[in-house]
Design a protein around this nucleic acid. Structure first.
Lengths: 198, 198
DNA sequence: CAGCTGACAGATTTCAATATCTGTCAGTCC
DNA sequence: GGACTGACAGATATTGAAATCTGTCAGCTG
């Protein structure tokens, strides 16, 4: 029942931190700014997050989780053809990243800095995504659509690495260029041929 | 006949510049330093390179060309099985990059900064590498070992992009980690299956 | 006269003083 | 007594003046 503006919660602090990051950028966003935005002393913020790094990592985690959840639906849809599902999943990941990077480049750069710092949260996120891919590959192998020599997870990881150019932030610049769509198609087709049972 | 220490040539300037970069790093290497190392005034350096950026780009180009030439031999060896050749070529590229990054990380970081600046030289280099791959793919298609739906160059570009994690400097950190060899194998196997005629 | 020098203007970088921030904690307030 | 404050020490960032660098060019030199 506690109304938002009354109690100071981790959630409220995270929201304020996102806002401060959006306004000031990652280099100039301070804990004092966050506290000021919430109308409290910065000591109170440290009651909920042990360090500034922990606060920033929590913001990263929220952001990364939003992407994961959008894709989880495609990965889990066991009814559909695994090849089509894989294609859609990879395209959705590419599209999501590309839209984020294109719509608000400054905010995207902010999150790039944050995730660079947040080793743990990123590792978890990547593990989650590879897990989703593993599910699709395993479904494909079980249905006879795919044939792979080793464990499904090895193949999933290979798929993830091979498509890095279309989801890894370090390539964000290239996502604007004209030919990328075709490059993406070519890579995905090549990978699907490699997966297909013969 | 002109002996090295007498005349000031572009070549000598490039060598001195590499040395200065190795010593001082990319941030603190100045044209004045290069001139001092050569025992000339910095005005003389500008007689051979219009700007500091042009000088640095020339250094990048030399460095990139060394890598290209090492691989060209594998790509051009028309006698060998294209699949084996492709495997070797990709492994050689990975190994070369990994060795450079591992042996002298500081120097590698220097060259990462240089190539980041040198858009043109890098684009040429990448085009060269994709050209070499195209040759291998075309040979494979002609010999009946590979079957691809589109032009060989599209496929070559897809191969290059799909293996980015194992040659793109932005992943240099990961090349030290234990599992990379296996990750590389998994990606290459998947790609070769995608290329193979059935 | 071709190649080099060195002084110069404007741009960039360095450095040290100054201000701000992080993280702690004794104490205040419901 | 549990949540919050605000002063504090040490670490980090900002700032502006001084030093250095880039790129040019008139003149020297062999």
């Amino acid at each position: 029942m506690a109304p938002t503006p009354e109690t100071l919660t981790a959630e409220r602090i995270l929201e304020a931190t996102e806002e401060v990051l959006r306004r000031h950028g990652p280099a100039k966003a301070t804990v004092v700014d966050v506290a000021r935005a919430l109308g409290v002393s910065h000591g109170s913020v440290y009651r909920h997050f042990r360090t500034k790094a922990a606060l920033r990592e929590a913001v990263s985690k929220r952001w990364l989780d939003r992407t994961s959840q959008a894709l989880a639906g495609i990965a889990a849809d066991a009814e559909r053809d695994p090849a089509a599902r894989l294609r859609d999943w990879l395209a959705a990941l590419f599209e999501a990243k590309r839209r984020k990077a294109g719509d608000d480049p400054e905010l995207f750069a902010t999150y790039m800095v944050l995730t660079d710092e947040s080793g743990g949260a990123v590792a978890e996120h990547l593990a989650d995504l590879v897990g989703q891919l593993t599910r699709i590959v395993r479904d494909g192998v079980e249905s006879g659509a795919f044939a792979v020599p080793g464990p499904a997870e090895t193949e999933a990881r290979a798929l993830f690495h091979a498509t890095g150019r279309f989801h890894d932030p370090c390539y964000a610049r290239e996502w604007k260029q004209p030919g990328v769509e075709d490059e993406f198609e070519a890579v995905v087709e090549l990978l699907l041929r490699g997966l297909a049972a013969r």
